[in-house]
Design a protein around this nucleic acid. Structure first.
Lengths: 149, 149
DNA sequence: TATTGTTATACTCTATAACTATA
DNA sequence: TATAGTTATAGAGTATAACAATA
């Protein structure tokens, strides 16, 4: 972004610049935090997604994470080596694996997710609850819009 | 995020979830766009930062990009191999390099940055100019807050 | 034919840490 | 001593593309 000395910029560029910075700073700090649990941000996302919907396929997870199925394969390889996740055969489609958290995975998720949420809540305290709702609503609209554009 | 079946969530968690999604989707699409110019997102950021302030040191660039000086060194290695950027000795501190765009770098920046900005403006059209300003103001406040927390 | 998952390949980004040269 | 940059190492994440098994 940073168009240098340009005085006037489109409001959307300003919004995007700050969005990128907020994202980077939050990810940066939060990845320190995830280090305590030996999780990378991508692995945390897997944990969080599976926590919400166990038994999905690798393909389905790939779509949610916006990465390829090849990536998910490697990600699950690493996480199942750590015994956080397991693949189970899908009785209805023998091509497919269904993904589940192990006991250890559930335990880790139940520790790291609340801690992570608390971390986010704390860092968003710069904004009032009302502002947080406004921000959420604007970003939700943008999020939905980006699905068709 | 995705706390699964939980009904009530803190407004900041909703905002953060959508912020992550918006960021991911925008980056994903925009990285296709940058591919046309043979640029990675990180390289684009270098181009954009140098466009705004030529003659900064590698250390200073590292701080702006929120990465280590070792990363910047490799990044500049790759970009100077492509003749987009050059290192010049700092006459006032012989430890330091000052970074400049080459003619080719300036040319590329002057093509890719406006195209990229146009891309962002288009994708933010989901929101009215007024909403974009509101979003920008909220994210700016959050951005500043995160510098001290 | 199309889809799920796997594998092979390659590259970028990233961090850490030790090193050199300057300050 | 401290700082700027370099280098070596290592690992994760990512994409692409070809492949096998199954639908």
């Amino acid at each position: 972004m940073t168009t240098g000395t340009t005085g006037i910029r489109h409001p959307s560029l300003i919004a995007w610049m700050h969005l990128m910075r907020v994202y980077s700073k939050m990810q940066h700090h939060s990845s320190d935090h995830l280090d305590d649990y030996d999780l990378t941000p991508a692995q945390f996302e897997v944990l969080a997604h599976l926590s919400g919907s166990q038994g999905i396929s690798q393909q389905s997870l790939a779509e949610k994470l916006l990465v390829t199925k090849g990536n998910v394969c490697g990600l699950i390889d690493r996480m199942s080596a750590q015994e956080l996740v397991e693949r189970r055969a899908d009785p209805e489609d023998r091509r497919s694996n269904l993904l589940f958290l192990t006991g250890k995975g559930v335990e880790l998720a139940s520790a790291v997710i609340p801690a992570h949420e608390q971390y986010i809540v704390q860092h968003m305290e710069a904004l009032s609850p009302e502002e947080q709702r406004t921000l959420g609503a604007l970003l939700r609209d943008l999020d939905k819009y980006l699905d068709h554009h």
